[in-house]
Design a protein around this nucleic acid. Sequence first.
DNA 1: TCCTTTTATTCGGTTACCTTACTAACGTAT
DNA 2: ATACGTTAGTAAGGTAACCGAATAAAAGGA
Lengths: 384, 384
Amino acid sequence: MAMGPRDVAVLAELRLRDATRPELAAATGFSKPTISEAIVSLEAAGLVVNRGRTAGAVGRNPRVYAINARASLVAGVDIGGTNTRVAVADLHGQILAERHERTTGSRVQQQVRRLIRQVHKEATAVLGGDGCALASIVVSTPGVIDRGSTQARFAYNVRTDGIIDLTALRDRLDPPLRVENNVNLAAVGEARAGVAEGVGTFVHLAIGAGIGLGIMHGGRLLRGAHGAAGEIAYLPLGRRPLAKEHRASGNFEAETAAAGLLDRAQSARWDADPPQDVAELFHRAEQGDRAARRLVADEGRRIGLAVVAVCSVVDPELVVLGGGIGRNQLLLESVSQTCAELLPAPSPVVTSTLADRGSLIGAVLSAVDDAWSLLQSNPKEASS
Amino acid sequence: MAMGPRDVAVLAELRLRDATRPELAAATGFSKPTISEAIVSLEAAGLVVNRGRTAGAVGRNPRVYAINARASLVAGVDIGGTNTRVAVADLHGQILAERHERTTGSRVQQQVRRLIRQVHKEATAVLGGDGCALASIVVSTPGVIDRGSTQARFAYNVRTDGIIDLTALRDRLDPPLRVENNVNLAAVGEARAGVAEGVGTFVHLAIGAGIGLGIMHGGRLLRGAHGAAGEIAYLPLGRRPLAKEHRASGNFEAETAAAGLLDRAQSARWDADPPQDVAELFHRAEQGDRAARRLVADEGRRIGLAVVAVCSVVDPELVVLGGGIGRNQLLLESVSQTCAELLPAPSPVVTSTLADRGSLIGAVLSAVDDAWSLLQSNPKEASS
DNA sequence: TCCTTTTATTCGGTTACCTTACTAACGTAT
DNA sequence: ATACGTTAGTAAGGTAACCGAATAAAAGGA
């Protein structure tokens, strides 16, 4: 049932680029006859298609083969604090249909199930009716997720009583479903379709309503012993690391994430009214407002300290700032400067370009990986 | 030349425990005839020896096979700030001979070469003359080592002008030589022969003359993008993370490592004379001296903050404290308490038991691994 | 037109496994 | 003691996945 190493190697190569048989032979190290056999079996399984021949060169023109990206579909789901997003993509990770709605606190599982059905239908329509079943689903949520679990635990969370449980969702859906931390998935997104493309070792620091860190090391996610790696809400930074007020939820997060920043903004002196939310604060800073700029620079220094701490521990090649707060370009300067001052060899710091879709994109791409490894262990499906 | 997967699997199993052919068949999943073939070829290569038969059970008594640990020898070298240690071990990592000398600042390479020769000769004598060549050498040094390099760089170091270069040493020695950071190797030591045996994901925090962190994640060393993971001298902790005085060498290290602790000790109030060195400080604290205990508790809180920072980033299963300062039991309480106060799920904190030989032992065990992977790619040597 | 170049397939052979069936060695019950 | 059951090891034959070499097919250019 499981396909052999030669088929796996050929598929891996074709996922990188379309290729001819001689190219595949050179790339995989297998002989030409072996590659031909692999092509035959993969074509029969519907995983590989012929894209015609090249032309122009001397000698017989080779046929070009490519992944059949429509062999199955996958879904990515991002359950956020405010929005829940669902996307359905083909095996290249190309998103065919996508929707979002406000998250319903208690009925998340039904909501997600309905959204998946709807988006799947839309994707099928996009493909012109010859759609096919979902091969895998990856769900992004905040919280700490034990390996293989469908439960996300929070040390402290008002909305959900400390837990999000997607067990019922998994049991009611046909394709295998995996739950992964949202910040980790955002890092995957950056690694495969964002500013960290081609960078094996980097961190993605997300600052928004909360604060979290996704760590990619040598192309692999770093999850830690209990899936809690990157839960840096508790970093003992700042003037009062031992303060008792926000210990439960983490002093650093309380100071640095949206609530803390807004607090400081509202108790600062303003020419006009204080800003109502963080977006307005950054908007004013962009307009040149002195008070706003000072607050942003201060926030940048705060974040900079976290970046310094993280860099000294994991030595990334790149630091990506994301999340509602972190993705503001205005922060870059003071963050970079803090690093430059405190680190002997500071890593470059850049801003995420995936906006608020990082986790969703990471979920989709992870689902693609899951689908491929499933297909490789039992290649029996084919539809288009 | 390279040995096949069946031989590799059999060797891997035998490295864990001696075993009979049926046991090997069950453990590796290969059939009995295949195991027999593997045994024949491995015995011929001198890598496996017959240890006789079991007796007592009903049925024919199986032969027991074991790794031939004497098939080659390996060397571990630890170049420390004050002492340079060399050990030669067999393929089980069993140390057969060991020496240490004070490190000679400039002539390290010659010194190490001489020590290796001497210790190798001693080890050969221990084996009763039928010794054999060294198959691999791993050298432990402080500093940041680029992948595959023989140079260790320091952001800041008085003794060595910022670099230790072992290229000449490697070129003059026959067996392959690998250079690795001393704290990383100490973590390897803890993982394989220390308090972290069987723990896949843990950190080893070494505090002595300097301060460093070795990170083990899922059984693998975490080196970071430039080999600088765990260089936590620059952690922006404490009251004045931005202080300029010790930026070059790292404020956290300056405060927390030996020099900083001694500074504080000497400017504290004492009934008698202030302690001359860190060892004396801890000795007095053990005797119950109030001032000493206060300083130790304060140091523990300082270290505790670093542990909290590290735990929130990498989520280890265990924290091991080592190094001349870190291994003092007296610190444990205040470190653990700081973690308990600031982390929602604090990892247990324990003290290293390898004393100042952690890096050496890690170097030896890494050299054993290197030797095995070399033997697996070209198994031609055999001696005893 | 034929020749050169490159692609694709066919064919025979090797390797590394497997299963089955046997022989060898041991403890124990008769 | 001898026969018997159990377990270890070996011999023989089969199969799948690969290889290299030879050959057939398809293209451009002399």
